[in-house]
Design a protein around this nucleic acid. Sequence first.
DNA 1: GGAACTCGCCAC
DNA 2: AAACGTGGCGAGTTCC
Length: 466
Amino acid sequence: MQTQLTTADAYNLVHDGILAFARAEQQGMRIDVDYCERKKTFLTRKIEYKVKQFYETELGRQWHQVFGPKMTLGSNDQLGHILYETRGIEPVKLTASSKKGATDEAALKQLKIPDLDILIGIRKLKKIRDTYLDAFVREQKNGILHPFFELHTVITFRSSSRRPNFQNIPKRDKESMKICRSAIYPRLGHQLMEVDFSSLEVSIAACYHKDPVMIAYLMDPDSDMHGDMAEQIFLIKGFDKKKYSEHKLLRNAAKNGFVFPQFYGDFYGNNAEGLCTWVDLPQSKWKPGMGMKLPGGIHISDHMIDNGVKSFDAFVEHLKGIQDHFWNDRFKVYGQWKEDWLEEYRNKGYFDLFTGFRCSGVMGKNEVINYPVQGAAFHCLLWSFIDLDHRMREEKWDTKLIGQIHDAVVLDVHPDELDYVSKVVKEVTCVALPKEWTWINVPLDVEADLCDVDRPWSEKKAYELN
DNA sequence: GGAACTCGCCAC
DNA sequence: AAACGTGGCGAGTTCC
Protein backbone atom coordinates (compact mmCIF):
# COMPACT_ATOMS: atom_id res chain seq x y z
CA MET A 1 0.00 0.00 0.00
CA GLN A 2 2.53 2.49 -1.18
CA THR A 3 1.25 6.03 -1.56
CA GLN A 4 2.73 7.58 -4.66
CA LEU A 5 3.93 11.12 -4.05
CA THR A 6 2.74 13.74 -6.53
CA THR A 7 3.86 17.07 -7.96
CA ALA A 8 1.78 18.72 -5.24
CA ASP A 9 3.77 16.88 -2.58
CA ALA A 10 6.97 17.99 -4.28
CA TYR A 11 5.74 21.57 -4.31
CA ASN A 12 4.90 21.47 -0.62
CA LEU A 13 8.31 20.07 0.21
CA VAL A 14 10.01 22.95 -1.58
CA HIS A 15 7.63 25.53 -0.12
CA ASP A 16 8.01 24.33 3.47
CA GLY A 17 11.72 23.78 2.90
CA ILE A 18 12.33 27.33 1.77
CA LEU A 19 10.57 28.67 4.85
CA ALA A 20 12.51 26.39 7.20
CA PHE A 21 15.78 27.32 5.49
CA ALA A 22 14.92 31.02 5.75
CA ARG A 23 14.62 30.66 9.51
CA ALA A 24 17.99 28.91 9.69
CA GLU A 25 19.52 31.62 7.50
CA GLN A 26 18.14 34.33 9.75
CA GLN A 27 19.46 32.53 12.83
CA GLY A 28 22.97 32.19 11.38
CA MET A 29 26.12 31.20 13.21
CA ARG A 30 28.78 33.09 15.12
CA ILE A 31 32.07 33.96 13.42
CA ASP A 32 35.27 34.92 15.23
CA VAL A 33 36.21 37.86 13.02
CA ASP A 34 39.39 38.70 14.96
CA TYR A 35 40.56 35.13 14.57
CA CYS A 36 39.91 35.28 10.82
CA GLU A 37 41.94 38.48 10.48
CA ARG A 38 44.82 37.09 12.55
CA LYS A 39 44.87 33.87 10.55
CA LYS A 40 44.72 35.77 7.26
CA THR A 41 47.79 37.79 8.25
CA PHE A 42 49.56 34.65 9.37
CA LEU A 43 48.71 32.88 6.11
CA THR A 44 49.83 35.86 4.06
CA ARG A 45 53.24 35.76 5.73
CA LYS A 46 53.49 32.04 5.18
CA ILE A 47 52.51 32.44 1.53
CA GLU A 48 55.08 35.22 1.02
CA TYR A 49 57.78 32.98 2.46
CA LYS A 50 56.85 30.12 0.17
CA VAL A 51 56.64 32.42 -2.84
CA LYS A 52 60.17 33.63 -2.15
CA GLN A 53 61.26 30.04 -1.78
CA PHE A 54 59.66 29.14 -5.09
CA TYR A 55 61.31 32.01 -6.96
CA GLU A 56 64.67 30.56 -5.97
CA THR A 57 63.97 27.12 -7.41
CA GLU A 58 65.10 26.14 -10.87
CA LEU A 59 61.50 26.13 -12.05
CA GLY A 60 60.84 29.55 -10.52
CA ARG A 61 63.90 31.02 -12.22
CA GLN A 62 62.99 29.52 -15.57
CA TRP A 63 59.42 30.80 -15.29
CA HIS A 64 60.75 34.28 -14.56
CA GLN A 65 63.17 34.07 -17.45
CA VAL A 66 60.38 33.31 -19.89
CA PHE A 67 57.68 35.68 -18.62
CA GLY A 68 59.75 38.42 -16.99
CA PRO A 69 57.67 40.98 -15.09
CA LYS A 70 54.49 39.38 -16.47
CA MET A 71 55.16 36.27 -14.40
CA THR A 72 52.07 35.43 -12.30
CA LEU A 73 52.23 32.54 -9.86
CA GLY A 74 48.49 31.97 -10.00
CA SER A 75 48.46 31.61 -13.77
CA ASN A 76 48.12 27.99 -14.75
CA ASP A 77 48.39 29.06 -18.39
CA GLN A 78 51.93 30.24 -17.68
CA LEU A 79 52.76 27.17 -15.61
CA GLY A 80 51.48 24.90 -18.37
CA HIS A 81 53.53 26.84 -20.89
CA ILE A 82 56.75 26.35 -18.90
CA LEU A 83 56.15 22.67 -18.18
CA TYR A 84 54.67 21.46 -21.43
CA GLU A 85 56.28 23.82 -23.98
CA THR A 86 59.49 25.29 -22.61
CA ARG A 87 60.47 22.04 -20.93
CA GLY A 88 58.63 19.89 -23.42
CA ILE A 89 57.24 17.49 -20.85
CA GLU A 90 54.45 15.24 -22.09
CA PRO A 91 51.29 16.12 -20.09
CA VAL A 92 49.91 13.19 -18.06
CA LYS A 93 46.42 14.64 -18.37
CA LEU A 94 44.55 17.23 -20.46
CA THR A 95 41.99 19.78 -19.31
CA ALA A 96 38.34 19.08 -20.04
CA SER A 97 37.35 21.85 -22.44
CA SER A 98 40.42 23.28 -24.14
CA LYS A 99 42.48 20.08 -23.99
CA LYS A 100 45.64 21.79 -22.75
CA GLY A 101 48.09 20.12 -20.37
CA ALA A 102 46.48 19.98 -16.93
CA THR A 103 48.13 21.66 -13.97
CA ASP A 104 45.99 20.41 -11.12
CA GLU A 105 47.57 18.81 -8.09
CA ALA A 106 47.25 15.23 -9.33
CA ALA A 107 48.88 16.09 -12.66
CA LEU A 108 51.74 18.05 -11.04
CA LYS A 109 52.44 15.31 -8.48
CA GLN A 110 52.95 12.79 -11.24
CA LEU A 111 55.69 14.90 -12.79
CA LYS A 112 57.84 14.26 -9.68
CA ILE A 113 59.33 17.78 -9.74
CA PRO A 114 60.02 18.77 -6.09
CA ASP A 115 59.81 22.51 -6.94
CA LEU A 116 56.12 22.01 -7.70
CA ASP A 117 55.41 20.88 -4.14
CA ILE A 118 56.04 24.45 -3.01
CA LEU A 119 53.48 25.69 -5.53
CA ILE A 120 50.94 23.12 -4.36
CA GLY A 121 51.51 24.34 -0.79
CA ILE A 122 50.93 27.95 -1.86
CA ARG A 123 47.68 27.02 -3.61
CA LYS A 124 46.38 25.31 -0.50
CA LEU A 125 47.09 28.27 1.79
CA LYS A 126 45.59 30.73 -0.71
CA LYS A 127 42.48 28.60 -0.93
CA ILE A 128 42.02 28.72 2.84
CA ARG A 129 42.62 32.46 3.00
CA ASP A 130 40.77 33.66 -0.09
CA THR A 131 37.85 31.26 -0.40
CA TYR A 132 36.99 30.70 3.25
CA LEU A 133 38.41 33.15 5.83
CA ASP A 134 37.98 36.11 3.48
CA ALA A 135 34.41 35.13 2.69
CA PHE A 136 33.56 34.63 6.38
CA VAL A 137 34.69 38.17 7.17
CA ARG A 138 33.05 39.64 4.07
CA GLU A 139 29.68 37.95 4.56
CA GLN A 140 29.26 38.25 8.33
CA LYS A 141 27.12 40.97 9.84
CA ASN A 142 27.74 41.89 13.48
CA GLY A 143 29.77 38.74 13.93
CA ILE A 144 27.03 36.46 12.58
CA LEU A 145 27.30 34.53 9.31
CA HIS A 146 24.08 33.83 7.41
CA PRO A 147 24.75 31.33 4.63
CA PHE A 148 21.89 30.98 2.15
CA PHE A 149 20.34 27.60 1.31
CA GLU A 150 18.50 27.38 -1.98
CA LEU A 151 16.15 24.86 -3.51
CA HIS A 152 15.74 26.23 -7.03
CA THR A 153 19.26 25.95 -8.49
CA VAL A 154 20.13 22.27 -8.70
CA ILE A 155 19.08 20.05 -11.59
CA THR A 156 18.58 17.02 -9.31
CA PHE A 157 16.36 18.96 -6.88
CA ARG A 158 19.08 18.97 -4.26
CA SER A 159 19.95 22.20 -2.42
CA SER A 160 22.82 24.61 -2.91
CA SER A 161 24.40 27.14 -0.58
CA ARG A 162 26.13 30.47 -1.11
CA ARG A 163 27.48 33.64 0.51
CA PRO A 164 29.35 31.75 1.76
CA ASN A 165 28.84 28.20 0.58
CA PHE A 166 28.28 26.37 3.86
CA GLN A 167 28.41 23.02 2.08
CA ASN A 168 32.08 22.92 1.09
CA ILE A 169 34.04 24.03 4.14
CA PRO A 170 37.21 21.89 4.38
CA LYS A 171 36.88 18.69 6.34
CA ARG A 172 39.28 16.00 5.09
CA ASP A 173 42.56 17.91 5.04
CA LYS A 174 43.41 18.33 8.73
CA GLU A 175 45.21 21.69 8.46
CA SER A 176 42.57 23.30 6.22
CA MET A 177 39.80 21.90 8.40
CA LYS A 178 41.35 23.25 11.61
CA ILE A 179 41.98 26.73 10.26
CA CYS A 180 38.58 27.19 8.59
CA ARG A 181 36.31 25.53 11.10
CA SER A 182 37.99 27.24 14.05
CA ALA A 183 36.26 30.42 12.87
CA ILE A 184 32.74 29.04 13.39
CA TYR A 185 31.11 29.13 16.84
CA PRO A 186 27.71 28.54 18.41
CA ARG A 187 25.92 31.26 20.36
CA LEU A 188 27.49 31.91 23.77
CA GLY A 189 26.69 29.09 26.17
CA HIS A 190 25.70 26.73 23.34
CA GLN A 191 27.25 23.90 21.41
CA LEU A 192 27.37 22.90 17.74
CA MET A 193 25.97 19.54 16.74
CA GLU A 194 25.97 17.87 13.33
CA VAL A 195 23.82 14.86 12.53
CA ASP A 196 24.25 13.03 9.25
CA PHE A 197 22.57 10.03 7.66
CA SER A 198 24.89 7.03 7.26
CA SER A 199 25.47 6.15 3.59
CA LEU A 200 22.18 7.78 2.65
CA GLU A 201 22.56 7.64 -1.14
CA VAL A 202 23.39 3.94 -1.05
CA SER A 203 20.23 3.32 0.99
CA ILE A 204 18.03 5.45 -1.25
CA ALA A 205 19.44 3.76 -4.35
CA ALA A 206 18.37 0.47 -2.77
CA CYS A 207 14.81 1.82 -2.49
CA TYR A 208 14.78 2.14 -6.29
CA HIS A 209 16.56 -1.06 -7.36
CA LYS A 210 15.63 -3.30 -4.37
CA ASP A 211 18.66 -5.53 -4.91
CA PRO A 212 18.44 -8.25 -2.22
CA VAL A 213 22.22 -8.52 -1.85
CA MET A 214 22.57 -4.78 -1.33
CA ILE A 215 19.64 -4.75 1.07
CA ALA A 216 21.27 -7.59 3.02
CA TYR A 217 24.42 -5.49 3.33
CA LEU A 218 22.35 -2.54 4.56
CA MET A 219 20.36 -4.65 7.04
CA ASP A 220 23.28 -6.53 8.59
CA PRO A 221 25.52 -4.31 10.71
CA ASP A 222 28.20 -7.01 10.79
CA SER A 223 28.48 -7.15 7.00
CA ASP A 224 31.00 -4.97 5.19
CA MET A 225 30.54 -4.27 1.49
CA HIS A 226 33.71 -2.20 1.14
CA GLY A 227 35.76 -4.77 3.04
CA ASP A 228 34.45 -7.51 0.76
CA MET A 229 35.40 -5.42 -2.27
CA ALA A 230 38.86 -4.75 -0.85
CA GLU A 231 39.36 -8.52 -0.43
CA GLN A 232 38.37 -9.10 -4.03
CA ILE A 233 40.32 -6.21 -5.56
CA PHE A 234 43.54 -6.77 -3.64
CA LEU A 235 43.24 -10.57 -3.48
CA ILE A 236 43.45 -10.75 0.29
CA LYS A 237 42.28 -13.66 2.39
CA GLY A 238 41.53 -13.14 6.06
CA PHE A 239 40.75 -9.46 5.59
CA ASP A 240 40.44 -7.76 8.99
CA LYS A 241 40.07 -3.99 8.99
CA LYS A 242 39.76 -3.93 12.77
CA LYS A 243 43.06 -5.70 13.32
CA TYR A 244 45.22 -4.10 10.62
CA SER A 245 45.47 -0.41 9.80
CA GLU A 246 46.79 -1.52 6.39
CA HIS A 247 43.52 -3.33 5.72
CA LYS A 248 41.62 -0.21 6.75
CA LEU A 249 43.54 1.71 4.09
CA LEU A 250 42.79 -0.93 1.47
CA ARG A 251 39.14 -0.82 2.46
CA ASN A 252 39.14 2.95 1.99
CA ALA A 253 40.80 2.53 -1.38
CA ALA A 254 38.12 0.04 -2.43
CA LYS A 255 35.34 2.29 -1.15
CA ASN A 256 36.53 5.59 -2.63
CA GLY A 257 38.47 4.22 -5.59
CA PHE A 258 36.03 1.60 -6.83
CA VAL A 259 32.62 1.20 -5.15
CA PHE A 260 31.45 4.82 -5.04
CA PRO A 261 32.84 5.75 -8.45
CA GLN A 262 31.06 2.66 -9.85
CA PHE A 263 27.79 3.84 -8.31
CA TYR A 264 28.24 7.18 -10.04
CA GLY A 265 28.86 5.48 -13.38
CA ASP A 266 32.63 5.31 -13.57
CA PHE A 267 34.38 2.35 -15.20
CA TYR A 268 37.24 0.01 -14.34
CA GLY A 269 39.88 1.82 -16.42
CA ASN A 270 39.64 4.99 -14.35
CA ASN A 271 39.25 2.98 -11.16
CA ALA A 272 42.57 1.24 -11.77
CA GLU A 273 44.42 4.57 -11.87
CA GLY A 274 42.72 5.82 -8.72
CA LEU A 275 43.35 2.63 -6.82
CA CYS A 276 47.04 2.64 -7.75
CA THR A 277 47.39 6.15 -6.37
CA TRP A 278 45.84 4.98 -3.10
CA VAL A 279 48.24 2.08 -2.64
CA ASP A 280 51.19 3.88 -4.24
CA LEU A 281 51.72 1.55 -7.18
CA PRO A 282 52.97 2.84 -10.56
CA GLN A 283 51.06 2.59 -13.84
CA SER A 284 53.69 0.35 -15.39
CA LYS A 285 55.23 -3.07 -14.86
CA TRP A 286 55.32 -3.93 -11.15
CA LYS A 287 58.52 -5.05 -9.48
CA PRO A 288 59.12 -6.47 -5.99
CA GLY A 289 59.33 -3.87 -3.23
CA MET A 290 56.84 -1.38 -4.71
CA GLY A 291 53.87 0.35 -3.09
CA MET A 292 52.45 0.29 0.42
CA LYS A 293 53.32 -2.42 2.89
CA LEU A 294 50.80 -5.03 3.99
CA PRO A 295 50.61 -6.57 7.48
CA GLY A 296 53.82 -8.53 7.92
CA GLY A 297 55.82 -5.95 5.98
CA ILE A 298 55.34 -7.43 2.50
CA HIS A 299 55.04 -4.83 -0.24
CA ILE A 300 51.75 -4.87 -2.10
CA SER A 301 53.53 -5.31 -5.43
CA ASP A 302 55.04 -8.61 -4.24
CA HIS A 303 51.63 -9.71 -3.00
CA MET A 304 49.90 -8.86 -6.27
CA ILE A 305 52.65 -10.45 -8.37
CA ASP A 306 52.41 -13.63 -6.25
CA ASN A 307 48.71 -13.69 -7.03
CA GLY A 308 49.24 -13.36 -10.76
CA VAL A 309 48.72 -9.60 -11.22
CA LYS A 310 52.13 -8.55 -12.43
CA SER A 311 51.60 -5.10 -13.95
CA PHE A 312 49.25 -2.16 -14.15
CA ASP A 313 47.82 -3.54 -17.39
CA ALA A 314 47.12 -6.84 -15.69
CA PHE A 315 45.46 -4.96 -12.84
CA VAL A 316 43.19 -3.18 -15.32
CA GLU A 317 42.12 -6.56 -16.70
CA HIS A 318 41.67 -7.84 -13.14
CA LEU A 319 39.39 -4.88 -12.37
CA LYS A 320 37.43 -5.41 -15.57
CA GLY A 321 36.52 -8.83 -14.25
CA ILE A 322 35.57 -7.37 -10.89
CA GLN A 323 33.36 -4.76 -12.51
CA ASP A 324 31.57 -7.44 -14.55
CA HIS A 325 31.09 -9.52 -11.42
CA PHE A 326 29.96 -6.45 -9.47
CA TRP A 327 27.06 -5.60 -11.80
CA ASN A 328 26.19 -8.98 -13.34
CA ASP A 329 26.59 -11.22 -10.32
CA ARG A 330 27.06 -9.60 -6.92
CA PHE A 331 24.50 -6.82 -7.48
CA LYS A 332 22.75 -8.21 -10.54
CA VAL A 333 19.34 -6.84 -9.58
CA TYR A 334 20.87 -3.37 -9.20
CA GLY A 335 22.59 -3.80 -12.56
CA GLN A 336 19.32 -4.86 -14.20
CA TRP A 337 17.50 -1.90 -12.61
CA LYS A 338 19.99 0.49 -14.17
CA GLU A 339 19.24 -0.91 -17.62
CA ASP A 340 15.47 -0.95 -17.07
CA TRP A 341 15.41 2.56 -15.61
CA LEU A 342 17.39 3.91 -18.55
CA GLU A 343 15.18 2.09 -21.02
CA GLU A 344 12.06 3.53 -19.42
CA TYR A 345 13.48 7.05 -19.58
CA ARG A 346 14.35 6.59 -23.25
CA ASN A 347 10.78 5.50 -23.96
CA LYS A 348 8.99 8.17 -21.94
CA GLY A 349 11.43 11.09 -22.05
CA TYR A 350 11.27 11.63 -18.31
CA PHE A 351 11.37 9.87 -14.95
CA ASP A 352 9.87 10.60 -11.55
CA LEU A 353 11.57 10.64 -8.19
CA PHE A 354 9.98 8.86 -5.23
CA THR A 355 9.41 12.30 -3.77
CA GLY A 356 7.12 13.50 -6.56
CA PHE A 357 9.64 15.49 -8.60
CA ARG A 358 9.96 14.90 -12.35
CA CYS A 359 13.19 15.05 -14.35
CA SER A 360 12.89 15.57 -18.09
CA GLY A 361 15.09 16.78 -20.91
CA VAL A 362 18.08 15.28 -22.65
CA MET A 363 20.13 13.20 -20.25
CA GLY A 364 22.98 10.76 -20.56
CA LYS A 365 23.08 7.34 -18.94
CA ASN A 366 24.89 8.38 -15.79
CA GLU A 367 22.59 11.33 -15.22
CA VAL A 368 19.50 9.16 -15.59
CA ILE A 369 20.87 6.72 -13.02
CA ASN A 370 22.17 9.32 -10.57
CA TYR A 371 19.56 12.06 -10.46
CA PRO A 372 16.70 10.12 -8.85
CA VAL A 373 18.99 8.88 -6.10
CA GLN A 374 20.71 12.17 -5.41
CA GLY A 375 17.43 14.09 -5.33
CA ALA A 376 15.40 11.70 -3.20
CA ALA A 377 18.28 11.22 -0.77
CA PHE A 378 18.47 14.94 -0.19
CA HIS A 379 14.70 15.08 0.25
CA CYS A 380 15.07 12.74 3.23
CA LEU A 381 17.22 15.40 4.84
CA LEU A 382 14.85 18.14 3.73
CA TRP A 383 11.79 16.43 5.19
CA SER A 384 13.67 15.89 8.45
CA PHE A 385 14.80 19.51 8.50
CA ILE A 386 11.23 20.75 8.02
CA ASP A 387 9.90 18.46 10.70
CA LEU A 388 12.60 19.46 13.17
CA ASP A 389 12.01 23.13 12.39
CA HIS A 390 8.33 22.60 13.10
CA ARG A 391 8.89 20.86 16.44
CA MET A 392 11.51 23.43 17.38
CA ARG A 393 9.02 26.25 17.03
CA GLU A 394 6.06 24.35 18.39
CA GLU A 395 7.95 23.44 21.56
CA LYS A 396 9.81 26.75 21.73
CA TRP A 397 13.28 25.25 21.79
CA ASP A 398 16.21 27.47 22.61
CA THR A 399 18.13 25.09 20.32
CA LYS A 400 18.13 26.26 16.67
CA LEU A 401 18.70 24.73 13.26
CA ILE A 402 21.43 26.71 11.52
CA GLY A 403 22.44 24.79 8.41
CA GLN A 404 22.38 21.72 6.25
CA ILE A 405 24.90 19.83 4.11
CA HIS A 406 22.94 17.53 1.74
CA ASP A 407 22.65 14.61 4.17
CA ALA A 408 23.43 16.39 7.42
CA VAL A 409 21.77 18.95 9.65
CA VAL A 410 23.70 21.41 11.83
CA LEU A 411 22.24 22.71 15.08
CA ASP A 412 23.16 25.27 17.69
CA VAL A 413 22.14 23.42 20.84
CA HIS A 414 21.44 24.60 24.38
CA PRO A 415 23.24 22.15 26.70
CA ASP A 416 20.10 21.65 28.83
CA GLU A 417 18.23 20.51 25.72
CA LEU A 418 20.97 18.27 24.36
CA ASP A 419 19.50 14.95 25.49
CA TYR A 420 16.00 15.83 24.35
CA VAL A 421 17.07 17.27 21.01
CA SER A 422 19.26 14.23 20.34
CA LYS A 423 16.31 11.96 21.00
CA VAL A 424 14.01 13.97 18.74
CA VAL A 425 16.53 14.18 15.89
CA LYS A 426 17.03 10.44 16.00
CA GLU A 427 13.30 9.82 16.15
CA VAL A 428 12.49 12.16 13.26
CA THR A 429 15.19 10.85 10.93
CA CYS A 430 15.04 7.13 11.68
CA VAL A 431 11.39 6.55 12.67
CA ALA A 432 9.06 9.37 11.58
CA LEU A 433 10.58 9.79 8.13
CA PRO A 434 10.43 6.11 7.06
CA LYS A 435 6.91 5.97 8.51
CA GLU A 436 5.83 8.96 6.40
CA TRP A 437 7.52 7.76 3.22
CA THR A 438 6.63 4.12 2.77
CA TRP A 439 8.89 3.79 -0.29
CA ILE A 440 11.81 3.75 2.15
CA ASN A 441 12.31 0.01 2.46
CA VAL A 442 15.68 -0.10 4.23
CA PRO A 443 16.53 1.05 7.76
CA LEU A 444 17.96 4.56 8.00
CA ASP A 445 20.63 5.42 10.51
CA VAL A 446 22.26 8.65 11.66
CA GLU A 447 25.58 9.56 13.24
CA ALA A 448 26.29 12.66 15.28
CA ASP A 449 29.20 14.91 16.12
CA LEU A 450 29.19 17.41 18.95
CA CYS A 451 31.39 20.29 20.14
CA ASP A 452 31.82 21.33 23.75
CA VAL A 453 30.06 24.48 24.94
CA ASP A 454 31.55 27.65 23.39
CA ARG A 455 33.98 25.66 21.28
CA PRO A 456 34.38 26.01 17.50
CA TRP A 457 33.30 23.59 14.79
CA SER A 458 36.86 22.35 14.34
CA GLU A 459 36.61 20.58 17.69
CA LYS A 460 33.66 18.34 17.03
CA LYS A 461 33.84 14.83 18.39
CA ALA A 462 31.79 11.73 17.74
CA TYR A 463 28.68 11.77 19.89
CA GLU A 464 26.48 8.78 20.65
CA LEU A 465 22.79 9.51 20.12
CA ASN A 466 20.72 7.41 22.53
C1' DG B 1 35.67 47.97 -16.67
C1' DG B 2 32.39 44.26 -16.69
C1' DA B 3 30.63 39.72 -18.72
C1' DA B 4 31.77 35.19 -19.86
C1' DC B 5 34.79 31.68 -19.95
C1' DT B 6 38.40 28.16 -18.13
C1' DC B 7 40.65 25.92 -14.55
C1' DG B 8 41.38 24.29 -10.07
C1' DC B 9 39.51 22.80 -5.60
C1' DC B 10 36.42 22.50 -1.62
C1' DA B 11 32.02 19.67 -0.14
C1' DC B 12 28.40 15.61 -0.58
C1' DA C 1 30.68 2.62 -28.13
C1' DA C 2 31.41 4.95 -23.93
C1' DA C 3 33.13 5.97 -19.57
C1' DC C 4 32.35 10.02 -12.26
C1' DG C 5 26.88 12.53 -10.44
C1' DT C 6 25.69 17.62 -8.10
C1' DG C 7 27.11 22.31 -6.65
C1' DG C 8 29.91 27.46 -5.33
C1' DC C 9 33.68 30.30 -5.79
C1' DG C 10 38.39 32.61 -6.60
C1' DA C 11 42.01 33.79 -9.97
C1' DG C 12 43.38 34.38 -14.55
C1' DT C 13 42.12 35.36 -19.14
C1' DT C 14 39.64 36.97 -23.18
C1' DC C 15 36.29 39.64 -25.37
C1' DC C 16 33.50 43.62 -26.04
